[in-house]
Structure formats: C-alpha cells, structure tokens
Amino acid sequence: MEVVSSPVPNGRYVIAKRHKDVIYTSGMTPRRSGVLVYTGAVKPGCPVEDYRDAAVMATANAVKAALQLLEAGERICEVLVLTVFVAAEPEFTDHPRIADFASTYLYERFGANGVGARAAVGVNSLPGNATIEIQLSVVVDHVPKFHPA
C-alpha cells in the first residue's frame, strides 16, 4: 500500500531534514492525500493484524518524505532507526508486534539494510487521534554508475 501523494506538514515543521548523508523524517501518521485514515487507540484483545495497514501506510509516508530529499543518482541505502509510536489503551502491551509490520515493510523495500535499531513506544494519544506514528532515520548513498566493459 503506497501513499497517493507526498506527505504535507500539518504545522510549523518540515517533513524531513537532511544532514550530510543522513535523513531524519518527522513523525508520519497513516494519511492518504493528507487525510488521516486510521484513528483511535489500539484495544487489547483485538488482533494486531487489524493494525497492519495503518503501520504500513505510516511507514510508506515516512519513506516518501525521505525520498523527497534525495538528489539525482542517490538512494536510501540503509535504515538506521525506526521509531514506532502506538496509541494504545493502557492494557495493550503488544506494541512490538505492531512495530513488526513497519519493520517488515522496510525489509521488503530495502532488504536486510531496511532493518535498523527500533523502538516501539505506547502512548496515550497521537496527533489527530492517529493510531500510529512512524519516524525514520536513513542513510543516503550514490547509485553506482554502470560502465559497460
């Protein structure tokens, strides 16, 4: 599931910031064309699979934000840090399983280099009542040019 359009800040911040060869994204929620799609706290007893699409959409938005700062001939080569914030009711304790959906998306997109350090954090609420918020730090490198023999 990819985002339809580029993420847009909902306040006074940028969606991503680059320092040398590292890009840091702002927290990205599960929005499609600027509209928050998944809201409400995760409830204990609900299958974690019910939150897969929210995690994937928020992660895809974070990747899209990072991609906007690439220059010609560059690519994201490695995920350094993935931070997953999960709005959850106090009794819910399976935050890492929801974060696994984000990790799996990054692994499928970037291979083994898509797996970085990670935090899965439960919170009382997120902006706009979002279910999940994703923040990424990624490394950029230059795509090797092909030189025919």
Rank of each mutant, 00 (worst) to 15 (best):
L82P: 02
V42M: 08
L136W: 12
K17W: 15
T39E: 09
F110G: 00
E71A: 07
V22W: 10
G27M: 05
T104W: 09
S137F: 12
Q135G: 01
T29M: 13
V3A: 03
Y13W: 12
V84H: 01
P47S: 15
E2D: 08
V56Y: 01
I23M: 13
A119K: 15
L70P: 04
N61E: 06
L70R: 09
R32V: 02
A112Y: 15
R18T: 07
C46H: 10
L126K: 05
V86S: 10
R118I: 03
R75H: 12
I134L: 13
I134N: 02
Q135V: 11
V63T: 01
A99M: 05
G111R: 13
A99C: 07
L69E: 13
F85S: 01
A102T: 00
K64M: 05
K17I: 14
E91F: 13
I23F: 07
A87T: 00
L80S: 12
V138E: 06
A55P: 01
L70Y: 04
D100P: 05
A62L: 12
G128Y: 15
D50E: 13
V56M: 08
E108M: 09
A130D: 06
G40D: 06
A41M: 12
A117L: 14
T29Q: 08
C77P: 01
E2A: 00
D53H: 10
I76Y: 03
G34P: 03
D53S: 11
A58R: 01
F92N: 03
S125H: 09
I134P: 00
G73R: 13
L82S: 02
A62N: 06
